[in-house]
Amino acid sequence: MSRLPQVIGRACVILALLAQTALAQAIPYQRPVDTAPQADSIGGGYKVPAVQKPLPRDYWLQVLDVVALAAAMGISVWLVLKRRSRKWLTALTIGSLAYFGFYREGCICPIGSLQNVVVALADPKYSIPMVVTATFVLPLVVALYFGRAFCGGVCALGAIQELVVLKPVQVPRRLDRALGLLKYVYLGLAILFAVKPALARDFLICRFDPFVGFFRRTGAPHMLILGGAFLVVGMFVGRPYCRYLCPYGGLLAWCTRLARRGVTITPNKELDCGLCAGACPYGAIERMRAVRRNCLYCARCYAYCPRERGVAS
């Protein structure tokens, strides 16, 4: 008899655990149908129609997104390193903006997937589909070999800024470097908020994505204004979000240290004219050399280079 309370206590704990797991897996709002008239009661040959259930984007279409991402990066590498063509790269930029931006409405993108990867690594209960993992990893792998090919011509957020660059000013080197550190702070914050427990979790990068409102043609007014402001500033300061804030850009920049190749400006036949450095809106050319860390694969330097034109003709 004296053991009874113990047994009851244990049973309660087990029941509580069972209830908890049941709750965690519960499909919302199931209740027995006991009073609604059914087909046999209604008669007259009536059949209960099926409730339509739309499926999410087909799996093969999701895989297609990843393939498109890989292909776009491959084309970007080829156009910039081999063809050295600014014109075709601009075409790729527009295509990527149309597909990844306006058609896919900015989702999924490697920048945001960073947070999901972090959460999936930190939280044993959270998992991400394979396509998200692939979306995150692919641009990093490319960066390890060829530099930030993703940033040029593939990334929709980059593309929308790339196309508004109008009259870029050179940001003083020191200020440029100091501002460039911001993206690592943002990266740290994004990780910090993502690894919080499920209810307190926040996805800063998505929440403060300045351009996704344009891609979706709807959004909170303050975010649309912010995005507009970025674009206006972007006319004069090349790609401000990419250079100073993009946390994924920070990861890519780090990867480029190990890159085997990158943008090279007319190797072995330089004129030392400096036209390329003047043409680069992103301050990525130092001492007549492209700095892989900062180079955004836009190919402007080729377009402005007298030697390149010689090569082309």
């Binding site: 999410p56 990867v117 690594l121 998992s127 991400i128 589909p129 394979m130 993992t133 990893v137 792998v141």
Partner: peptide, 16 residues
């Protein structure tokens, strides 16, 4: 990267 990706893929549980 490959190790991390393999871990995530192994954990993947279809679409959420």
């Amino acid at each position: 990267l490959a190790g991390g990706a393999a871990f995530l893929v192994k954990k993947a549980n279809g679409q959420i």
